[in-house]
Design a protein around this nucleic acid. Structure first.
Lengths: 225, 225
DNA sequence: ACTTGTGAAGCATTTCACAGCC
DNA sequence: GGCTGTGAAATGCTTCACAAGT
C-alpha cells in the first residue's frame, strides 16, 4: 500500500476526483465500459488529458475498447485512498462548523465527523447534531481516543493559526482550512484551503470584463482570440 | 472604468486577493511603505512574482523605496472592483445557505446578501436571520427589484444546474457554486466553484505520502515567517 | 475501425537576472 | 545600497499525433 507514483501534478489530482464522480454515476447506471472520448463528452476534459492523467497511476484501459467502469472506479478509489474511513474533527462551533457537522453529503463519503471543538465557554458543552461541543484546549488529549486524522478549521481568520497548531499537536495529519487566512503547518501535515471570500473577490474582478449577453442578432465577427 | 489589461493569469488574480489582505493589515497597522521583498517575507510569495503580478495592472512602486501602502491598496481595490457594493442572492436555505447568509465576515466586505431562495414549500416563508426565504421559482421576477448580480448556489448536487439556470434567467452575472457538481452557464456569466468534498478527497490522496514527522533532531532550516 | 498510452510540441506560468532609478 | 519593472530562461502543464493493441 501507499504506492509511489512520482510527482503527480495537482491539477491531475483535482481532475481525478471528477473522474471518480463520473464513474460512480456510470457504475450506478449499470454502464460496463467507457472510453476517454465518452468521458470527454460528459466532463468537458480532453480525452488525451484524461488518458495522460490516468497514465500517472498505471494502465487501466484496453485499446479499441476503453475502460472497465468498475475496475477503473476501484483502482482510482484506492489511489485516492478513499477506500478507507477518514475521521475528521471540526474546530469552530459557529455557523460554518455547524453546517459542516450536519452536511448530509458526508453520508455517501468515507469521511466521518467524530468531534467538534470550540474555545468559547458559552458554546462548550452544547450539543450540535449528535455531538457535544468540546473544549479545543483538550483536543490533544481527547484525540488520543477520537483518533481523527483530518482537521477542519471553521473559526474566524484571527484564530485559524491557533487552531492549526492545536490540531498538529493533536496528531492531525491533514487540515482543511475554511478561514480567509493563510496558516503555516509542518511539512508532515497536508493542508488545503477553501476560501470562498477569495472566490467572491475573483468573481468581482470579472464584472464588466465579460462578453456581452447575446440578444437576438447574429454575433459580430469579432474573432478576438 | 472597466480598464482593459489584457489576459491576466488566474493564479495572479488569486494572489492579488492575498496582497490585498496583507495591505489592509499593513494599512491598519499604520505602515506607510512596503517592498516586494517584505511582502515575500509575510506571504511566502517570491518578490519577483509579486512585482510581475502587479506589472499586469501598472507601475505602482518607486525604485529604491517600494510601494506606498495606501496607494497600492486603493489601486488594487479598484482593479478587483471591490470599491463598489456587490449584491448577492443565495439559492438553498439549508445548513450551508443559512451559514453563508449569517456569515459575519461579509460585514467588512463589499458583498451583501440581499435574498435567499429555496424550492421547498416547508422552508419558503420562514425567516433566516433578517431575510425571508423566498420561492426560487419567483427569482426572475423578484430580482428585478433586488438587483443582485452575484448568485450563490448552496443546494444539493442534483439541483445545482437548475438553480444556475434560474439565476442566469434572473440576470445574475456571476455564480459561486458550492455544490459538488459541475454547472454549465453562458459565456456572459462568470462562474467559480467551491468544492470542499473535492478538497477533502485531495487531502486523502496525500495520506501516507507525506514526509515522516521529525522527532527530536535539529529543526530543519524552514524559514517560515 | 476504434481506442489506448506516450513521446514530442506547444503553451502558460514562474523564476532569474539585471538595467535603470531613488 | 536598495528597489522596481521586465525581457529571457526555466519549469510545468496541456495538447497533439501516432505507433501499437484489440
Amino acid at each position: 500500500m501507499a504506492a509511489e507514483y512520482g510527482r503527480v501534478p495537482e491539477p491531475t489530482l483535482a481532475r481525478l476526483t471528477r473522474y471518480l464522480r463520473c464513474l460512480r454515476q456510470l457504475a450506478e447506471a449499470g454502464v460496463k465500459t467507457v472510453s476517454s472520448k465518452q468521458m470527454e463528452g460528459k466532463l468537458g476534459v480532453l480525452s488525451a488529458q484524461i488518458r495522460k492523467d490516468l497514465s500517472y497511476f498505471g494502465e487501466f484501459g484496453k485499446p479499441g475498447v476503453g475502460y472497465d467502469v468498475q475496475h477503473l472506479l476501484g483502482r482510482l478509489t484506492e489511489v485516492m485512498q478513499l477506500d478507507r474511513e477518514h475521521r475528521a474533527v471540526i474546530a469552530g462551533g459557529g455557523n460554518l462548523g455547524s453546517a459542516l457537522a450536519g452536511y448530509a453529503g458526508f453520508a455517501k463519503s468515507p469521511f466521518r465527523i467524530v468531534g467538534i471543538f470550540d474555545n468559547n465557554f458559552s458554546k462548550i458543552g452544547r450539543m450540535l447534531w449528535n455531538l457535544e461541543i468540546l473544549d479545543i484546549r483538550q483536543m490533544p488529549e481527547i484525540n488520543k481516543t477520537l483518533k481523527a486524522d483530518i482537521g477542519i478549521i471553521a473559526v474566524p481568520a484571527e484564530a485559524a493559526q491557533e487552531a492549526a497548531d492545536i490540531m498538529v499537536e493533536s496528531g492531525i495529519r491533514a487540515i482543511l482550512n475554511f478561514a480567509p487566512a493563510r496558516i503555516t503547518v509542518p511539512s508532515h501535515v497536508a493542508e488545503r484551503n477553501v476560501d470562498f471570500l477569495r472566490e467572491m473577490e475573483m468573481l468581482s474582478y470579472y464584472f464588466d470584463r465579460l462578453p456581452p449577453e447575446p440578444n437576438e442578432c447574429a454575433p459580430p465577427p469579432t474573432d478576438a482570440k
